[in-house]
Computed example of a mutant assay.
Amino acid sequence: MNLKFLETFVWVARLQSFSLTAEKMFSTQAAISSRIASLEEELGLRLFVRDSRGVSLTLEGLKVLDYAEQMLEVQRALKHSLDNTNPQQGLVRIGVMDTVIHTWLSPLMSTLMQTFPAVEIEITADAARNLCDQLQKGYLDIVFQTDLIRHESVRNLELAHYPMHWIAASNSIYARPYASLAEMASERIITFVKNSRPHQDVLNLLHAHGISTPRVSCVNSVSAMTRLIRDGFGIGALPAALVAKPLASGELIQLEPGTRLPQLDVVASWRAGVGLELIESIVDMSRQVVSQYAADVGPLRMVPAPGLNNRRTLE
């Protein structure tokens, strides 16, 4: 039995798409279809159902998937036992939201490159919603973003929470006491990209306090957002970790209108399965890096998720 055909079968089952599998395996859709057809002919079984909704496994295909993953794991273990002197190689595609880039991505990359110097790393920065979509389509291997991904082939690990604050430039017109959230909401609020988790949290909080038409400006770049806040163009709704230095110097201040913002969660999400041990190693690495980063900056900037050191993985 051709192990390359089995590997192709496993990826079609995971991605539920012939075209995405072709991209993943640097092949053509015709070649992928031919491999699956050959495997079905050899086994005398129909492995997939193809319809307008996409590709799904048959009952026989589900049984074959379990054995196929076991066979690929044996192949991987055999190769490793025969040649364990070579460093780990391959390409890892990591998706990150802006907040991670500006806080603990650098120590993670430093640790990753020291541990796996031969691994090629590709970084994609995007909004959480887009990162989740790209992971499920197979364009990314692991993403660090805000939401749990409910998908049968995706695992999630809650990493940490960023406390969110109302922040303004200390020399701006906004640097004054506010008696209530409603009073503060009459000013311009600056926050993350539209429809992101923090943007929705800000809107929900304001609406819950009867503020139906707030002036909220959405910015899709953390650098641009913090620049606008520092230059006095509005009140920021963002994690204090992103502006730790200007807060410490007094250039920025935290406002206390009596109502706190919901925290911003950070979740690692990745595809589960045989042959993805490198991804699992990076997830474990991120857990350690986040724990250390949180310890360094303190609970006002970042709080590790409960049980992080015991690695609580959510399917």
Rank of each mutant, 00 (worst) to 15 (best):
G273T: 13
K79P: 05
N84L: 10
S269L: 09
Y174D: 13
G234C: 14
R287H: 11
P87G: 10
G258P: 14
P177D: 15
A224C: 11
D201A: 14
H102M: 02
Q16H: 04
M164N: 06
P107K: 04
T99W: 00
A37Y: 07
S186N: 13
A68W: 03
S110W: 01
K194R: 15
T99P: 02
S110R: 00
R301K: 05
S34F: 04
T226N: 00
L255M: 08
E256Y: 13
Q263S: 15
A294E: 06
Q200W: 11
V289K: 05
D296T: 07
G250M: 12
S212R: 07
I279R: 12
D231W: 09
M71N: 02
N130L: 06
R50D: 11
V283W: 03
P306V: 02
D201K: 09
S212V: 10
R155K: 07
G234E: 11
R312S: 13
M184A: 13
V96E: 09
P239E: 04
L72D: 12
T226Q: 01
A295V: 09
A68Q: 04
A77N: 11
D126C: 00
A22I: 01
I142E: 12
S249I: 15
G298H: 02
H151S: 14
L57M: 02
V303F: 06
F116E: 03
G54S: 08
C132K: 00
M285D: 12
L108A: 08
S221E: 15
W104C: 04
V49S: 07
Q145Y: 10
S34K: 06
E158I: 09
Q145V: 04
P214Q: 08
C132E: 09
V64P: 05
V243E: 01
L47D: 03
A295T: 03
L300N: 06
V216E: 11
A185M: 10
R197G: 10
H209W: 02
R301Y: 11
F116G: 01
I32T: 01
L45F: 04
L206G: 15
T85L: 07
Y178A: 07
S212N: 14
V74T: 05
Q254K: 11
T115R: 06
Y178N: 10
R150I: 15
R53Y: 09
D141N: 05
D201Y: 09
N204C: 13
F116D: 02
I123C: 09
V303P: 10
H207Y: 15
A268M: 10
G236I: 02
V55H: 06
W11T: 12
M97P: 02
L255N: 07
Q263C: 13
L62M: 06
